[in-house]
Design a binder for these strands. Structure first.
Lengths: 187, 187
DNA sequence: GACTCTCCATACACAGATGTATGGTATTGC
DNA sequence: GCAATACCATACATCTGTGTATGGAGAGTC
C-alpha cells in the first residue's frame, strides 16, 4: 500500500551518498538528484534549507558510516591474539567498498568541512591502528610507521584497484610483515 | 621589455595544473582561469577549441610530469645496491608534492580520460617497483605485494599528511622492512 | 608602410543550477 | 469529516559558465 512512498530526508541523503561515490561531489546538486529521484526540486528545498545544508548532512552520514560502525565492531572482539584480530580487520577492510574515501578527500578541495571530516576520520583510524601495534609489542615509532603503512595500503585500493589488488594470501603476508620483529618470543 | 608578455598555450596549461592541484578539477573553467590570469575568455578560446581540449592538454601535461620525468631519472643510476637505490627513490618521492594525484584520480569520476591516465601512471609505477623487488631477490608474489605497499605509502601522503608523515628514520625503517627476508646472505 | 600573424576584448545567445514564492495533494490526528 | 501537517509541482528571477562572432591592437616581414 506504500508503493510510491514519499521521500524523507534520509532518502535524499542516501541518494547523495550514492551519487558521491559514483560520480563525485560535483553530482551533489539539487537539480540532478531531483531528476534522479523522479521528483522536482520542490521536495529538496522542503527537506533542506539550501545545498550547503544538504552537503553537511551527507558529510555527517559518511563520517558516521566510515568510522563509528566498522571500527566499533573491531574493538568489541579484542580478545586473545592481536595478530588474528588485525588479520580479521584487514580482511574486512579490504573487501568493502572504498569509493567514498576518494570522493570525500577531493571534496575537501572545494568544501572545507569535508577536508576536516576526512582528516578526523583518518586520525581516528591511525590512532586505533597505532595502539594495536604498540599493544602487540612494537615500540611507539615502529607502531606509528606500521599504522601509516597499513592505513595507506587500505586507502591505496582506490588508486591501485585496477592495477593490482591484494588477495587473501597477500593480505596474510602483509599482516605478517607488519607484525614481525616484535614477537619472536611470543609465538 | 617583455614585462607584460602575451600568454601562450603553455601558460594556460601551467595555470591549469596549478588550479587542479589547489582547487581540484572543478577549477578548470575558462571563466575562472581567465580572471585569474588577468585576461578575458577570448584568449582561452584562441588557444583551445573548447574546454574539453583544454582538459586533455592539462591531463597530458600531468601524465608527462608524473611518470616520465621522475622515473626516468630513477632508472639512470641503477648502479650497485638496489636497496640504496630504493631508498633514494623513496626519499625523493616522499619529499615532492603529491596534490595532483588526488585531483586527477577524482577527476576520473567525471572525465573518463583522467581515469585512464591515472591508471596508466600507477600501472607503470607498479611494474617498475615490482621489478626492483624481484631483482633484489624477492619472489614474484612478494615483490608485487611490496610494490603495492610502497606505492600505497607514497599515495597515502595526500590522505594522511595532516595525520602523520614519515620522517627520515621511518623511511629507512620502511625500506628495511620491505627489503628484508630476501637478502640475509647479501649483507 | 601596407600585410600578415598572433593574441585578446567585447557582446550575444544559451544552458545549467540555485533559491524563493505560491499553490496543490495526500495523509494523519482528533 | 475537518483541520493541520508533510510532501511536492510549477513558475520566476538570478547567477555562473560555455561557445561564437566580430573586431582590434601589436609585433614582425617584405
Amino acid at each position: 500500500m506504500e508503493q510510491a512512498r514519499k521521500l524523507q530526508k534520509a532518502d535524499w541523503i542516501k541518494a547523495g551518498l550514492k551519487a558521491l561515490g559514483t560520480r563525485g561531489s560535483a553530482a551533489l546538486k539539487a537539480d540532478i538528484l531531483a531528476r534522479q529521484l523522479g521528483v522536482s526540486r520542490g521536495s529538496f528545498y522542503w527537506h533542506f534549507a539550501d545545498v550547503a545544508a544538504f552537503h553537511r548532512a551527507v558529510l555527517a552520514a559518511w563520517e558516521e558510516a566510515a568510522v563509528d560502525r566498522p571500527y566499533a565492531s573491531a574493538m568489541v572482539k579484542s580478545s586473545d591474539d592481536l595478530t588474528t584480530n588485525l588479520r580479521a580487520l584487514v580482511d574486512r577492510a579490504f573487501t568493502s567498498p572504498v569509493e567514498l574515501e576518494l570522493a570525500v578527500l577531493s571534496w575537501g578541495k572545494t568544501f572545507a568541512e569535508a577536508a576536516v571530516a576526512a582528516e578526523r576520520v583518518n586520525a581516528r583510524r591511525f590512532e586505533l591502528l597505532s595502539s594495536m601495534f604498540t599493544r602487540q609489542g612494537q615500540d611507539s615509532k615502529a607502531a606509528r610507521m606500521r599504522a601509516y603503512l597499513l592505513l595507506s595500503a587500505y586507502l591505496g585500493r582506490m588508486h591501485l584497484g585496477a592495477v593490482h589488488s591484494l588477495d587473501d594470501a597477500e593480505r596474510g603476508d602483509l599482516v605478517a610483515l607488519l607484525t614481525n620483529g616484535a614477537q619472536e618470543a611470543g609465538r
